[in-house]
């Protein structure tokens, strides 16, 4: 009930019309959706753009130091069934890659923002290594690039109230970590895959 309200509200505010480019929406297997990050609405929008059945077994990955702060943020992230991970102070016991891999082995797909933080100016920053390590740890998962546009204008960093512009959510062709592919090459390729989905980009 709370969840379907959240989906409806997200769809209303963001006016989105999800597009799937060479990507099957109802894929039954494990996936990691990775996208550019500019707004708190990003994970809600990506999550709401998924088909219902897929959404039910997909968890957004969020920073514990931010979303685990107060009761309110924890409640919000629970509605979306978010997986809280540490960004700093990583140890063998508190290892985000292991937590993500464990969630995936339970049958959950993940939503990941490899830039690690929200971009302030809308430009897509360099990707952190987490996506690479996760791809090595769960090799059977498909990696799906997702391009999010205008959500950083609807709810920019540092604002609480949304401006109801029309956003776009574009899912691209799934990719995988190639055998022997170097970390920098893979991360650059993944980032380029997101950039290629910019609306108006002939690809």
């Amino acid at each position: 009930m709370l969840r379907s309200t959240a989906v409806l509200l997200t769809r209303l505010i963001t006016g989105m019309n999800p597009a799937w480019v060479d990507c099957e929406p109802d894929h039954p297997g494990l996936r990691v959706y990775f996208a550019n990050h500019g707004s708190h609405l990003d994970f809600a929008a990506l999550w709401a753009a998924l088909p219902h059945a897929v959404r039910e077994r997909t968890r957004p990955v969020a920073a514990r130091d931010y979303w685990g702060r107060t009761r309110l943020t924890r409640t919000v992230i629970e509605i979306f069934n978010g997986l809280l991970i540490a960004r700093e102070g990583i140890s063998r016991r508190d290892n985000p890659i292991e937590q993500m891999a464990a969630a995936m082995h339970e049958g959950h797909s993940l939503i990941l923002f490899p830039e690690g933080t929200r971009s302030a100016d809308g430009r897509i920053g360099e990707f952190k290594a987490g996506l690479y390590h996760l791809a090595g740890r769960v090799p059977e998962a498909e990696l799906v690039p997702v391009h999010l546009q205008n959500l950083n204008r609807i709810l920019p960093k540092g604002h609480l109230l949304p401006v109801p512009l029309i956003s776009s959510v574009v899912f691209g062709p799934p990719m995988k970590l190639e055998a022997g592919e170097r970390k920098q090459d893979f991360l650059a390729r993944a980032r380029q895959a997101v950039l290629n989905l910019t609306p108006g980009n002939p690809c």
Partner: peptide
């Protein structure tokens, strides 16, 4: 207005 402002460049 939603369509107009979506297409119009604005800043934070």
């Amino acid at each position: 207005l939603r369509e107009y402002l979506t297409v119009t460049p604005t800043r934070r």
